[in-house]
């Protein structure tokens, strides 16, 4: 059995339009062990988010192989990918992408409820996670009544509720003020370390990138460890 949680080899991604074929990823290789905290930096539009989406099973590579948590997601059908996303991956986006008609507690418990169908157990887990991210007093608030930093903390709690092996964070602090950004950064790195969860952060923030165990730079469609 492989020691790696993520194994990518020769990942290419093209975007085709009538006018041109744009190659965003030109053969990306990456291998990360479980519990590693890694960061990817690079200029805007270089394909960082696209690569993250491929790792999370939200997008498919044009070619190459991607195995995450033992699942070959380049071969999996839509239903298998859905189960993979529910069990293996927790997403934290730049924009919180919380569901507006759900309270903080409901947002966090929903992935667990969807996976298990057990509402009571899901609520209990969500309750504990919201306490852990310092939002014990905001359980019944809808996103519209939370600050940007609070929303992002809810999003982190949501990403953790199914205890995934991998957290994919795409510019998690990109939309926050400095104080909130630091809080979210601490939270992500802290939780990943405490729970031995693999964390892969895409960021423009060099400070945040520097805290990772491994730093990568995506340049000209290829990933380089720096």
């Amino acid at each position: 059995m492989s020691n790696y949680l993520i194994e990518c080899s020769g990942v290419r991604k093209e975007f085709r339009s009538e006018a041109e074929i744009l190659e965003i990823l030109s053969g990306v290789d990456l291998a990360l062990e479980k519990g590693v905290r890694a960061s990817i930096t690079g200029p805007s539009g270089c394909g960082k988010s696209t690569f993250l989406s491929i790792l999370g099973g939200l997008d498919r590579p044009t070619s190459g192989r991607v195995i995450v948590g033992g699942v070959d997601i380049t071969e999996a059908d839509e239903d298998k990918l859905a189960v993979f996303r529910a069990r293996e991956v927790g997403f934290v986006f730049q924009f919180h992408y919380l569901l507006n008609d759900f309270t903080a507690l409901e947002n966090v418990m929903l992935p667990a409820f969807m996976l298990t169908g057990d509402k009571a157990a899901s609520v209990e887990k969500a309750y504990g996670l919201l306490e852990a991210v310092g939002l014990g007093g905001r359980m019944s608030h809808v996103p519209a009544r939370l600050s940007g930093g609070e929303r992002q903390r809810v999003a982190i709690a949501r990403a953790l509720v199914n205890e995934p092996g991998l957290i994919l964070a795409d510019e998690p602090t990109g939309n926050l003020d400095r104080a909130s950004a630091v809080q979210v950064e601490d939270l992500l790195y802290g939780i990943a370390a405490d729970s031995n969860t693999t964390l892969l952060v895409v960021t423009h923030d060099n400070g945040m990138a520097a805290r990772a165990d491994r730093r990568y730079e995506l340049l000209n469609g290829r990933l380089k460890e720096s």
Partner: peptide, 16 residues
């Protein structure tokens, strides 16, 4: 659309 996308990222299948 966005919420549907979020639901998919959380593990909802097309059938769901």
């Amino acid at each position: 659309r966005q919420e549907i996308a979020v639901m998919k990222s959380l593990g909802a299948t097309p059938g769901d």
